[in-house]
């Protein structure tokens, strides 16, 4: 009895592992495919039996080892052709910089404004506090597209079309951060703040020198989630940005699809360049992503 259940447990664990591995392969295949295609040679891209691993990955090191240094570097040169075309024939560098500007400035501003507001909402008593908070939070349920048209009119009136500010400003208005930081700050003992007050710290001083350092993990989490979300945002920048020179990466990527002569090698190179930074950020700060999700949930 005991033994058979142990056996069953082992079989169960084996099956479970198998399912997980298959699911992980399915999960990562499209991304792998983006990067693989970006490095494929032209004849590999258009072949009817696409190679799962680009030739350069298979043959580069053997070529070097067998002393065919010239052949190896030629292969490497050829497989970077897609990226070279991408960077020389499109505004990829501009798009990348624009995305960086949008994401960085939106993130920094959001962190500052949201932490200020969240601090007041979490730790202060003032008339109208709950009302203001709930007005803001209730709009979290309203899907963004509802406001697409009026938002566009506002941006147009302000003359912010084809301007990165037109993308950044609506991002800054998002209330998720206030909610998330308030949840986090509520867990910080009020006594610490009171102690600083007794020591004669100013109101802003309490915020900047006591609250901010204590709330660092929450702020880091929000920062990373915000950076990720703004980097990936698509619909709104698509509407606001017309000129190629001001486009963000995601919008620029779409223009690669609209060309008459389809070039998958170049498209996937673009996708790879767009995906690369977020993947790096994620791998380095994985813990913060996890924390952000669990903090932002309804319980708490």
């Amino acid at each position: 009895m005991q033994r058979s259940s142990k056996f069953l447990l082992k079989v169960g664990a084996g099956i479970g592992y198998f399912i997980l591995v298959v699911a992980a392969v399915v999960s990562l295949l499209p991304l792998h495919w983006v990067f693989a295609t970006a490095l494929q040679l032209h004849d590999e891209v258009i072949s009817h039996v696409p190679p799962l691993v680009p030739r350069v990955a298979l043959e580069y090191i053997p070529k070097v080892l067998s002393g065919d240094g010239e052949g190896a570097s030629q292969l490497l040169y050829d497989s970077l052709e897609n990226l070279r075309i991408l960077f020389t024939r499109t505004d990829m560098v501009r798009w990348f910089l624009n995305s960086l500007i949008v994401s960085t400035s939106a993130t920094v501003t959001i962190l500052f404004l949201d932490s200020l507001a969240a601090y007041a909402f979490a730790k202060k008593q003032f008339p109208g506090r709950d009302l203001l908070f709930w007005i803001m939070i209730s709009t979290m349920m309203i899907p963004g597209h509802v406001t697409l048209v009026p938002m566009f009119r506002i941006i147009a009136v302000l003359g912010l079309r084809d301007n990165l500010l037109g993308v950044i400003l609506p991002d800054i208005a998002m209330v998720f951060g206030v909610f998330l930081l308030r949840q986090f700050m509520r867990t910080i003992p009020t006594e610490l703040l009171d102690a600083a007050k007794i020591d004669g710290a100013s109101e802003f001083g309490i915020y900047s020198r006591v609250m901010l350092p204590l709330a660092k993990p929450g702020i880091a989490t929000l920062g990373i989630l915000t950076f990720n979300a703004t980097w990936n945002s698509f619909l709104w920048p698509l509407i606001v940005l017309n000129k190629s020179q001001v486009m963000t990466l995601q919008v620029g990527l779409k223009t690669l699809l609209d060309r008459n002569l389809v070039d998958y090698g170049m498209q996937m190179s673009g996708a790879a360049v767009a995906a690369f930074p977020v993947i790096i950020v994620f791998l380095f700060f994985q813990g913060y992503f996890v924390k952000g999700l669990t903090l932002g949930s309804l319980k708490g």
Partner: peptide
């Protein structure tokens, strides 16, 4: 974490 645009292109 990768954008929907990239995944959809893939």
């Amino acid at each position: 974490v990768t954008s929907a645009v990239v995944i959809a292109m893939a």
